[in-house]
Design a protein around this nucleic acid. Sequence first.
DNA 1: CATATGTCCTGAGAGC
DNA 2: TGCTCTCAGGACATAT
Length: 302
Amino acid sequence: MPELPEVETMCRGIRSIEGLRVFEVNPVACRLKPILMAPSFSEISRQLTGKKICRVTRLGKRVVIHFEGDFYLVIEPRMTGLVMLEDPPNQTHLRFELILRGELSGGGNQVRSKLPSSRDIRLLFWDRRGLGTIRLLTAGDFEHSVKNRLGPDALQMNAEVFRERFRRSKREIKVALLDQTFVAGIGNIYAAEILFLAGVDPRTRCDRIRMSQWERIADATEEVLSTAIDYEGSTLSDGTYRNAINGEGSYQQYHRVYDREDESCKRCQRGKIKRITQAQRSTFYCPCCQLKKLTHDSLGGD
DNA sequence: CATATGTCCTGAGAGC
DNA sequence: TGCTCTCAGGACATAT
């Protein structure tokens, strides 16, 4: 579930590790098959040990940690992965840990204990279901195999870019919004919320969407995602998603349609929120507010 | 090329 | 109560 707002919150939560140096890399024993990791754990460990962290950034739904020497550790949480500075709720599934230390000046480093000290900072990747991935890439590989394969970041979109990238597609808009090569960062929850706010029927084919609708979709994208970031993302009823220090997000309180099947629509108060399946995923929408034909916005304010 | 489907994985919840 | 089944969905491999 981590989508753009959750991953952005993770990045902000761990940003204080910038400037720290890797002291050691630990896999934590676990009864499950390891998450996908490339290259091997021992190779990642060898490459990262001693390296300094330059920057923590987000690329779509991925956390990117840039190390000195132009190495990029790319973490994809996918469904249930979490990047944290504290212990996750359940220790048994812990997968990957970086022990970090602030850079020490002078020549005292060599005599320091080999054991982690209480002043060490631990960066953890934990994944309840093990669908997440960790990859260590060179600058070139990062460019080719990650960056260039993604569409523009959802927060960088505008109506013109939406139209240019989507209008030739015959797919339904909800399905296309989930395609990370079209736009990066939107997942199932926020696609539903964005289309509700934009007043666009999720089943509308991209090639039938008009400019006035792209404008509403662009505005809604900005509004929904930036507000969700303000509330530190959405922690759903399964409680999985946590920020870097194990706190919950609160944007789920403001979901207008996601997981609100049969509830009455907050805007029109008439229709009930409907749930349909598109591309084997749930879509929630208001049949009353999200008409394909709808031209004008009587939709703007609350 | 564009689009559709199957796959990975665990835990929650339904149904019997 | 305890079992089995289905489902949740992000990204990618494979198929159409």
